[in-house]
């Protein structure tokens, strides 16, 4: 990604090949018709290229950073709402991010991804729906035919497992 930030087109092509289909699939799953999803995906990837220098591997994985860009674009285009974003921390005059920090974060992200794929299918589906379905608990319940209490307890179970896998609790 450092190469992308320096304007290396070949490096960006790699990022593009990996993420463009995923971003589009995410948008389709969130309810965009394919033409809109394609347009929106191009916009997201153009933003990734343009803002590459702002990507900080000590603060987010590349996938998470691209996810937030796609998420915001989706809110903007599909819901036509603003996205209130928390105030950025005042980082102060600080050296370049520690390589060790970036590495720790990438390892956490990898552990999280493994924990997600190890979740029982029913729990993972609830999380997937929560992120990609643009559905509230009540709407998920209506779609899957599961009672609201079950959905909530599954979400909680899934979150607890993820948390556990991340060694937070």
């Amino acid at each position: 990604m450092a190469r992308v930030a320096r304007g290396d087109r070949a490096a960006f092509a790699e990022v593009f090949r990996h993420f463009a289909p995923r971003v589009k699939a995410y948008l389709v799953k969130s309810g965009a018709v394919p033409a809109l999803a394609e347009d929106c995906m191009q916009d997201v990837m153009a933003t990734v290229w343009r803002k590459a220098a702002q990507f900080d591997p000590a603060r987010a994985s590349l996938a998470a950073w691209i996810f937030t860009i796609a998420r915001n674009r989706r809110i903007d285009l599909l819901r036509r709402e603003r996205r209130p974003e928390a105030e950025d921390l005042a980082w102060g005059p600080q050296a370049a991010p520690e390589a060790a920090e970036a590495l720790a974060l990438q390892q956490d992200a990898a552990r999280l991804a493994r924990a997600l794929s190890d979740l029982p299918e029913a729990q993972r589906q609830v999380i997937v729906q929560a992120y990609f379905g643009d559905l509230s608990h009540a709407q998920i319940a209506a779609r899957t035919g599961l009672p609201l209490g079950t959905i909530k307890s599954r979400t909680k179970l899934a979150l607890d497992r993820l948390r556990h896998a991340m060694g937070r609790e």
Partner: peptide
């Protein structure tokens, strides 16, 4: 916590099948 939830979003994006 929020950053961790955004990482979950990233992990799900990674898992997204390229299908369709």
């Amino acid at each position: 916590e929020l950053a961790a939830h955004e990482e979950t979003g990233g992990a799900l994006l990674e898992m997204m099948a390229e299908g369709g």
